[in-house]
Design a protein around this nucleic acid. Structure first.
Lengths: 106, 106
DNA sequence: ACCATAGATAAGCAGATGCTTATGTGAACC
DNA sequence: GGTTCACATAAGCATCTGCTTATCTATGGT
């Protein structure tokens, strides 16, 4: 038994790590680019990325000397799946969700 | 600046606390009922519930000597809102979501 | 072959976290 | 008023986390 959600939520619990993950929401980026404007040391960034990767939230691809990171859809899907347990508690947002889906159809 | 998501994800990072929260997904329950089958001391439960409440994930209502806890829709909505940033990464689940919405319409 | 650059890993440490036991508070019942 | 039950809070402590500095690995350029 692996309890994937443990790693996911623990990874997202740290504000710095969540900021990194949210940066990646806009698209693929390498570790150095991620550090820009973040007041974080290189080892710290590397450690955070390792945690995010261990949680299945982020994937890495070597490209020369750089390592590109991007959001792992599998991890996001797991969160969405977990959140689905509580869909009964956000009926007020149904309309907003509908709009999102309509938008995605086009 | 309060950074609500900080408290939310920190609260959900603990497996025991997540188990409690998931129990409440099925409906309102008091602290003693929540402890059943959980191998957790009374103070520990109380502390966990305090953290969940502080994060806005759970509400409490006194009913005589008991305190009933239930999921706070506001907290769930915040997670859904946060997750919406990543909707581009789970297109495979659009159909499932549509089914959910159709079901909610009825 | 040498050096520079991007990133990972190791070790150590200050602060946070979750548990414990003990005690406090509040409501019901006699 | 006193006792019991449901829960909260306090204090202490072992463990975990995230940072730091130092060092290692890997790739590219010359």
């Amino acid at each position: 038994m692996v309890m994937v959600e443990d790693d996911i939520f623990r990874a997202l619990a740290d504000p710095t790590r969540r900021a990194i993950f949210e940066k990646l929401a806009d698209g693929c980026m390498n570790a150095s680019a991620l550090r820009e404007g973040m007041a974080i040391s290189q080892p710290a960034m590397s450690q955070h990325l390792a945690v995010l990767r261990g949680a299945g939230l982020v994937r890495q691809t070597r490209q020369g000397r750089f390592v590109n990171y991007d959001v792992d859809p599998a991890g996001v899907a797991l969160i969405a799946q977990w959140l689905a347990k509580y869909r009964a508690y956000w009926p007020a947002r149904v309309d907003a969700l509908k709009a999102v889906l309509k938008e995605m159809d086009q």
